[in-house]
Simulated assay, not measured.
Amino acid sequence: MVRTRSRLLLEVLEVLSAPYSVLSRLMPQMAALAVIIAITAYVFMYFQHIDLVSAIYASVGLVTTIGLYTPSINAMPDSEKLFLTALVLASVATYTTIVMNIVSTITKRTVWTDARARWRASHVKDHVVVLGDVPEVAAELDRMGIEYIMVTSNESLAASLQNHRVIIGNPTSERELRAAGVESAAVVIIALESDSDSLTALIRVRRLNPKVRTVVMIHNEDLTDVFLDSGATQVVRLRRFIGRALAGMALSSNLGGVLLESTEGSSKALRQAGYGIGFFKVEKGSKCDGMALRELPKGVIPVLVERNGVFTPYFSMDFKLKEGDGLVVLGDPTKFTGIREICSAGGGPS
């Protein structure tokens, strides 16, 4: 399987492959049309004693109701008339339906979006898979430059996202999970309307990729232990999350440390994006391993460092990170992708 870290190359190959993916969707209709033409051609060959090429030519004319080849009615035996009458009745309706389906498929924007997303998902790794109707998550991942694939059955949502990272299908289906590249993903976010659907998706995700990090949003807090026992890395209890955020806003005019909105005096970029809190792990052999905090990308401030299971806010900018450390930063979320790369083994710009 070809893997590439060049986004431009990925975009080009994705566009070139889309027609082949769409064509595969049309194969059943085209096969049905071919069967009708073959049957009609056989009738012409049997009764009219014409060659194969002429029979196919005559069959296409009959099936499309153009009638380019019309044998003399008086010279036709009754059996042939009955065969052709039945074929005309069957083929006209079938042909019309098939052609309409083909045209509808080719001209439907979401079909091309889906085709491109499926190809892209098979050629990326360590990406984020989002299951459910959460365009806000997609927008944030886009803004932070994180590669992702979303799976949703909502076609109107797919059309509204204006990108080619959306697979249109059932988020709980193993077939669609495979299509989204769950087996090579780094993180799977599950945010479905039904907790039972979320549990089904979680179990299938875990079966396909036991090591993937899974973040699940649930509605019923009583099911927290069920999801954790089923392999969820982190469970977001929606009502508690919203409650804590709103309570935090009442006290501090922000989301209580989850997402800090910038002030009007901040730069335009930060007023639009807000401040985020990011958590990262320093892996062995990464650029962060042995790096001083002052070397972190501009736009973020180190808040806490976890070492040997203990968080400490007491450090200087000359403090050096090492393998196994946890790092908590505050700042522009668009910088988080760069930090994640330099803290990962083999990471950093290619």
Rank of each mutant, 00 (worst) to 15 (best):
I106Y: 03
H219T: 14
A41I: 06
T312H: 05
S156V: 10
G265D: 09
D126T: 02
V329P: 00
R240C: 04
K322D: 05
I167D: 01
V99I: 15
V205E: 01
L62F: 06
I50M: 15
P171R: 08
M144P: 00
A18V: 10
G231I: 02
R7G: 14
A90G: 12
P28Q: 06
F227E: 01
P71K: 05
K287S: 14
E221N: 07
S122Y: 00
L8R: 12
G348H: 11
S316R: 06
V235M: 11
L161G: 04
A158E: 02
T334Q: 11
A245T: 15
V300F: 06
A345Y: 12
L33V: 01
V236I: 15
L330I: 04
R109N: 12
I203G: 04
D114A: 07
F241D: 08
E193L: 10
L16H: 02
L131N: 02
E183I: 09
I342F: 13
V205K: 00
D114P: 03
G324Y: 04
G278N: 05
A186P: 00
C343L: 07
A115V: 03
S198T: 07
S24Q: 14
V166F: 04
V258T: 08
Q234M: 13
V53D: 13
P297S: 07
P77E: 10
G348F: 13
L255H: 09
V22H: 09
Q48N: 14
K287N: 13
E140T: 08
A201C: 05
V60K: 05
V124D: 03
H219L: 13
R213H: 07
R109Y: 09
V129H: 01
A247I: 07
I189P: 00
K81D: 08
W112S: 04
M100K: 12
K268E: 14
P135R: 01
L131M: 08
I277P: 01
Y314P: 00
D229K: 15
I36Y: 03
Q29E: 13
A115E: 00
F47N: 07
V88Y: 11
E147S: 12
G274D: 04
T214P: 00
I168K: 00
L8I: 13
T105S: 10
L177H: 06
E174S: 15
L141E: 09
E80P: 03
H219F: 09
V124E: 04
G348C: 11
K108M: 09
S262L: 07
Y42H: 08
P333N: 13
S79D: 11
E176F: 15
R118Q: 14
Y57P: 01
L87M: 13
G346A: 12
S350F: 14
A345I: 04
